[in-house]
Write a protein that binds this DNA or RNA. Structure first.
Length: 499
RNA sequence: GGCCCCAUCGUCUAGCGGUCUAGGACAUCGCCCUCUCACGGCGAAAACCGGGGUUCGAGUCCCCGUGGGGUCACCA
């Protein structure tokens, strides 16, 4: 019988959804699904100082938005709960005690002050900072006495001297560490909470995780984890340290230098498909030259051997390109739905005026909105561009720019031109793109104007914008009546200028 | 600084000893299409970090440098 693959992602609830978490989650999810395995979400809330209200909800929302749902989590109960580390304290304490009994861990009563002082001295002496094992030799009776006195204590794991510790990383192969440089790590804090190191080993084992995929930043603490597995007599799961995402300046992706919040991307109007595709592309390519794929295709083709382990720069320009691509691929009605969902979400998050405006348009003039969006679709890179791109269709009055309206001609000339054009277009029958365009070109010739100038003037008159979809298409969406009204408005605007 | 990881165009990569005068994508620039913007099409510029080996032959294997990154907490 083959082993059931179980993977996990274990974010700590910090209050906002990190793209790095999404990235890890995606990889874990994909691998689990590839093998009909299970993907677990575990909440690593062992740091009480950093606890943030509602942060856990945000994690669910993020995964659920991306449609990488866990099979087990505090919300999706499975057989290996609880899935919140703060609810597993007894378990960690019990295992820490086991290590004490096995003489592979010891109580430490050193104060933070002493530890800080010690580190400072070590650094000044050019030594690597490391716990000096001050409390390692304490007798059992002494420990019992001080514990009984209510002294604050932590539990540290004992690291053996002069030993090679081998971390077997699936991507990088065997990585060797000298045990002498490994610190006697605290595994249980004085508040009774475990540190990451104990918790990750205990939980991964108890939850039957077969493949532990995590960020590269954990590689240097991996020997501690290997040792803990040995102490407990457990077999080590397959370890994979995936590359960390980087800022454009190549440092680890951070809030200050890039945008690490998934919600930032969502607000901008990146689609989940684009984001997922992009994240995958950063480290993985299915076939030569195939860059656009769904997560289902990724599941189908996934193999660790194709995973790159060079830490990639998070290149927003490429993400944008992908986003535009996915935006264009959508059917118009699907796009409308997408826009509504986006706007509703942004309003709920931020109460943002522009997004509210979009909802108003969508509700009051759905048909106009849809047509207008259709014209904007191939120009769209981000959903947040919509309010600006579609504004002129809905505006009761346009904010004209005189220079754009005139295009090098005089006010008088332009008023005249607008009037004539208006008349001719009003009479035009049939109202087709061809007849329409011919009318304008003919008139430009009559005047001896450049066709371009007349088109641009009309564009400005109808939209008060410089960049729009082709004029005729815009007028068609706007409707003949409204289009002609706008020509009239523009001409009135110019009248006001002269008088 | 110690330890660890990594190293092909600006960015993401193809390349798994000869087919590499190094291929693709994004970004950049130019041209075409064209009423503007976009889409689309065509094209240009742009890289094997350096030095030693191994080999008939090295972008591809080994070593040493160099560079970048990570990590050295009662944070994860």
């Amino acid at each position: 019988m083959t082993q059931l693959i179980r993977t996990r992602v274990a974010p700590s609830p910090t209050g906002y959804p990190h793209v790095g978490t999404a990235f890890q989650a995606l990889l874990n999810w994909v691998y689990a699904h590839k093998h009909q395995g299970q993907f677990v979400l575990r909440i690593e809330d062992t740091d009480q100082k950093r606890a943030v209200e509602g942060a856990e909800q945000v994690i669910y929302q993020a995964l659920s938005w991306l449609e990488i749902e866990p099979d087990e989590s505090p919300k999706h109960l499975g057989d290996y709960g609880p899935y919140r580390q703060s609810e597993r304290l007894k378990i960690y304490q019990q295992y820490a005690q086991q290590l004490i009994d096995q003489d592979q861990a010891y109580y430490c009563f050193c104060s933070p002050t002493r530890l800080a002082k010690m580190r400072k001295q070590q650094q000044q002496a050019d030594q690597p900072p490391k716990y000096d094992r001050h409390c390692c030799g304490l007798s059992k009776t002494e420990v019992a006495r001080r514990l009984k006195n209510g002294e604050k204590a932590v539990i540290r794991m004992k690291i053996p001297n002069d030993q090679q510790i081998i971390v077997n990383d699936l991507l990088r192969g065997k990585v060797e560490f000298d045990s002498n440089i490994v610190d006697d790590q605290v595994i249980l804090k004085s508040d009774g909470f475990p540190t990451y190191h104990l918790a990750v080993v205990v939980d991964d084992h108890l939850m039957k995780i077969t493949h532990m995929l995590r960020g590269e930043e954990w590689l240097s603490s991996a020997p501690k984890h290997v040792l803990l597995y040995q102490y407990f007599g457990w077999s080590v799961p397959v370890m994979i340290h995936s590359p960390t995402l980087r800022n454009p300046d190549k440092s680890k992706l951070s809030k200050r230098k890039g945008n690490t919040s998934l919600w930032w991307y969502r607000k901008q109007g990146y689609l989940k498909e684009a984001l997922l595709n992009f994240l995958a592309l950063l480290v993985w390519k299915p076939h030569e030259d195939q860059e656009v794929f769904t997560k289902e295709e990724m599941v189908k083709n996934f193999a660790w051997s194709q995973l790159n382990f060079k830490a990639p720069v998070f290149d927003v320009a490429k993400l944008q390109w992908l986003n535009g691509l996915y935006l264009r691929k959508k059917s118009l009605s699907a796009l409308v739905k997408e826009v509504r969902a986006w706007a509703e979400w942004v309003v709920a998050q931020d109460d943002q005026a522009a997004a509210k405006q979009v909802l108003v348009w969508l509700n009051k003039q759905p048909s106009l909105f849809k047509k207008a969006l259709g014209l904007a679709q191939q120009r769209l890179k981000l959903l947040k561009e919509i309010p600006e791109l579609l504004g002129f269709y809905f505006a009761p009055e346009l904010d004209y720019d005189q220079a754009d309206l005139l295009q090098k001609h005089s006010v008088k000339e332009m008023i005249q031109a607008l009037t004539i054009i208006k008349q001719r277009l009003a009479k035009l029958d049939p109202w087709t793109a061809e007849s329409w365009e011919q009318t304008i070109r003919d008139y430009a010739d009559e005047l001896g104007w450049k066709h371009r100038d007349l088109f641009m003037a009309l564009r400005s008159a109808v939209t008060a914008e410089r960049f729009t979809p082709p004029l005729f298409a815009v007028m068609q969406v706007l409707g003949r009546t409204k289009s002609l009204q706008r020509l009239e408005q523009a001409s009135q605007f110019l009248q006001a200028v002269v008088s």
